[in-house]
Structure formats: structure tokens, C-alpha cells
Design a protein around this nucleic acid. Structure first.
Length: 289
DNA sequence: GTGTTTGTTATCAA
DNA sequence: CTTGATAACAAACA
């Protein structure tokens, strides 16, 4: 499940590899699309890759036009140099046969292929087809961001007082409030559970019931955990891979997510799993109150 | 066949 | 207009 750290890892990987490369062709294999990708992008290049929350924004050399990519649940963006075989999505093996089978692209989940003039390729894969690729102009992009996204948690505009005010006027539980991209952009199910564990706050607490000290702990935990997760190249729980098809390393650092019935790393109690805000939710009944 | 997985949006209710 | 609760989407896996 790509959340902010995973999307940021992909952004950095792709920025280092494909910036300013000329696009030879765009093949759309299966997707609901806005606009004609090939006609709009052929002969152009991407001059900058930005991110808002979990949304990737490819600035094109055609002034005022942007390609947006949302990975949603199972999307992947994998960039391969000419003749390179992806290493993503299968067990590590030195056998070239398995490597070729497991990593061969395109595969049946490939929806879009962008080929550059140096024969390198960018693959958009998505098993569950929730993700999208679309072209928008600057006005549409700005409208979309203003409507759907709160502050970036790792930027200075993420302000504790504003965050606290937002939480104070919501009656929903804190888990739902943090999943809301307008509260703060980029958290998803995994990192919300991790943040609330780090802050010692139960996910079912009404947002408006939180004390300032608790909100401050959550605020700090968001910054700390996201920063650390980016450093470890994200969490691979099912489908996520980075911009070259490799898994993330933060999975082993998770303290509650996916650890149902296992021992709490702090107190040894069994981690509880339940459903809150319609999502699988993990917490420690002893350390979080 | 059933339940579970989740980012986001649609839909409905208040 | 807002807020909140829930279903829906889609496909794989246990």
C-alpha cells in the first residue's frame, strides 16, 4: 500500500533516472484515461517530478501540462534501462530463469508503457486497477490539490497549532481523522497505526477528546516515522516496489501493523487487531490509551 | 463460496 | 454548505 514514504521513494528514484529524457511513445494497454497520452507526450520530456500526499505529479516540457499518477493500492511505477530485467515482486534468486520469469515486463498487470528515445522504459503496473494516469493542465492541478489535500507533513507549512485546531473540531475518531488527506496529506492505514502507537493514543478516541500533549505527540510521531520510513525506502507489505522494482525495508520496523496477536515491543501484551473507520486497525491495549 | 485486504470517491443522511 | 457513516470499486489470496 503506497503511502507518503513509498511514493516519495518512487519520486526520488524516477527523478534520478528519467528526468529530461525524450519520450518516444506512450502505449496505453488498459486504463480509463483522460486525454490521449501518446499524442500529448510524444517528443516531450518530464522536467520535474513532484509529489502531493500520495499523488505523483510529472511536470512535462509542454508548458502548463502535467501527468498525474496515483498508485492507490497496488500500483507500481518501474523504470528499466534498455534490456534490463526487473527484480521486483518475486523472491530473491540467483537463477536467471526465475529472475526472467518473475521480473519480466510488461506483464499482465501492465497498464501503460512510456518508452524514451534511449530505449529505457517506464512501466505502470496495477493488479487491482484502482490507480490512474492522467493528464491535466495547471488550473486543473491546482484545483485538485486545493480541494483534496491538507499540508505536507514534512514541510514547514505543517503547523502544530493548525493541526490541533483541525482535530479539535472533528467528532470522528482519531484514526479516521488522520486517514483524511485534508487533515494532513500522505498518511494511510499502515502509518496511521504506527503513528498512534508511537504517540500512545488509542485509534478509537474521538479526535476532539485529545489533549494538546497527545496531539503534540502525534504531530512529532508523524514527522519522525515518515522520515524514517523514507530513509528505509518504504514498507513493502504486498505489492509495493520502488522505482527500479525493489522492495522497501521499513516492513521490519513496523511495531503494530501486521503484528496481530504478537507481543508489543514495549510491554509484551498481545497486539490487538480490530476494525476502525472501516479499516484493519492494530494497537496495543496497554501502551495506548 | 466467504471473508479480508485499502485509497479514494460516491452516496446518503442529518 | 458541512460532516459523518458506509458502500463501492477491483482482484488476489487464505
Amino acid at each position: 500500500m503506497p503511502e507518503l514514504p513509498e511514493v516519495e521513494t518512487v519520486r526520488r528514484d524516477l527523478t534520478a533516472r528519467l528526468l529530461n529524457k525524450k519520450i518516444k511513445a506512450v502505449e496505453v494497454l488498459d486504463l480509463k484515461l483522460v486525454g490521449d497520452l501518446n499524442n500529448q507526450l510524444k517528443g516531450r520530456s518530464f522536467t520535474e517530478i513532484l509529489r502531493r500526499g500520495k499523488l505523483l505529479i510529472f511536470k512535462s516540457s509542454r508548458r502548463g501540462f502535467f501527468m498525474l499518477v496515483h498508485l492507490k493500492m497496488t500500483g507500481q511505477l518501474i523504470y528499466l534501462f534498455k534490456d534490463q530485467v526487473s527484480a521486483g515482486g518475486h523472491s530473491l534468486s540467483n537463477h536467471s530463469f526465475e529472475k526472467a520469469v518473475g521480473g519480466e515486463l510488461p506483464n499482465k498487470h501492465t497498464r501503460v508503457i512510456i518508452t524514451f528515445t534511449d530505449s529505457s522504459r517506464l512501466f505502470f503496473n496495477d493488479v487491482r486497477k484502482f490507480g490512474y494516469v492522467k493528464l491535466v493542465d495547471e488550473q486543473e492541478l491546482n484545483r485538485l490539490i486545493a480541494k483534496n489535500y491538507g499540508p505536507e507533513p514534512l514541510e514547514k507549512l505543517f503547523d502544530l497549532i493548525e493541526f490541533s485546531n483541525k482535530l479539535a473540531r472533528r467528532s470522528i475518531n482519531i484514526k479516521a481523522a488522520l486517514l483524511d488527506q485534508k487533515t494532513v496529506a500522505g498518511l494511510g492505514n499502515i502509518y496511521v497505526d504506527e503513528v498512534l502507537f508511537a504517540a500512545g493514543v488509542r485509534p478509537q478516541r474521538p479526535s476532539s477528546s485529545l489533549k494538546m500533549a497527545e496531539i503534540a505527540k502525534i504531530y512529532q510521531a508523524i514527522k519522525k516515522i515518515l522520515t524514517s520510513a523514507i530513509k528505509h525506502r518504504g514498507t513493502t507489505f504486498s505489492n509495493y516496489v520502488d522505482g527500479s522494482g525493489q522492495k522497501g525495508n521499513f516492513s521490519q520496523k513496523l511495531k503494530v501493523y501486521g503484528r496481530s496477536k504478537e507481543k508489543c515491543v514495549k510491554c509484551g501484551s498481545a497486539i490487538i487487531k480490530t476494525k476502525i473507520a472501516g479499516r484493519g486497525t492494530h494497537y496495543c491495549g496497554t501502551c495506548q490509551s
